[in-house]
Design a protein around this nucleic acid. Structure first.
Lengths: 151, 151
DNA sequence: GCTTGACCTAAAGTTAGCTTTAGGTACTAT
DNA sequence: ATAGTACCTAAAGCTAACTTTAGGTCAAGC
């Protein structure tokens, strides 16, 4: 064994991380300020150094955000991450809940897509006719039935 | 033929429409103010009366919003609706563009779902192990490959 | 030794999309 | 006629998620 077993992990500057994720530097600082990046360290001079774990956290933030989760809730999740193994159950429960929410979002987006497809057909015909007059009666919006909300 | 052919279409109050779509009354007024509801009429006393067309417009607003379209753009679209048949091409083009955007959103949401599924498996194992220690090495986040961005 | 570029903090500013407030009008039933 | 309910406008207020501003540190290269 070496006398000084200091495994200095590779780290990245805030600018490098910003480019990786196409985020602005102030945004990353804001995330840090809000406690969204567990265990993010600074050099004695006060410069942030991102470890792989920190980078993974930024990736998870992106995921949670695109699932529509507000910053405050992401904060709560990251606090649980900081608390270690005692919160594993909570974190699993959180992702299971999130999965259901995202399933609903996908269904909602599919409904939106159905409406858009309808409108594409509608306006496709209207453009052919040169007027909306005929298509308006033959393809009323009411002919687009919303899918039953199966629970 | 009757002497006075006044086809008085059935109309709805703002409160009724609010309930139909589960929107607040101020929200509907705000939409009207922003010009999102073409041809919305008021009684001489200034009370809004929603025709079927107006109600269809509210439904379309909901669709465009859930497609992530900002109010300002919905406004532009509704202005084209008000301009009549001359803008049919524009409106078709708009929905075709929107369709592509929503396809991308669905792909993004699928990626989010993949991450969530991964985290469910990850924390499921961690909970079984009683610690994150082992699963962290065996299932690093990097093992979740992002799908190639096929154009 | 001085300029350049990347970083820092604290605090104020911005934008979207509503919501709330304050004060008033108009049918509806008792 | 008066109480209640639903509607109205104009304007101010609110929240989230950043962004911008102002002023400063630090290490590297010329």
């Amino acid at each position: 064994m070496p006398a000084a077993t200091q495994i200095t992990e590779k780290t990245y500057s805030i600018g490098q991380v910003a480019k990786m994720f196409d985020l602005s530097i102030p945004t990353l600082r804001y995330y840090d300020q809000e406690g969204l990046i567990p265990h993010l360290q600074k050099t004695p001079a006060g410069i942030r150094r991102f470890t792989q774990d920190n980078i993974d956290a930024v990736r998870v933030i992106g995921c949670l955000k695109s699932a529509g989760m507000p910053i405050k809730e992401i904060q709560i999740f990251m606090q649980k991450v900081e608390q270690g193994d005692a919160t594993l159950n909570d974190r699993l429960a959180m992702f299971l809940r999130l999965k259901k929410q995202v399933e609903q979002q996908m269904q909602a987006l599919q409904n939106t897509m159905d409406m858009i497809d309808f409108k594409c057909r509608y306006y496709g015909q209207a453009v052919q006719d040169g007027t909306e007059k005929y298509v308006k009666k033959q393809m009323p919006l009411s002919s687009l039935v919303l899918p039953s909300n199966n629970k």
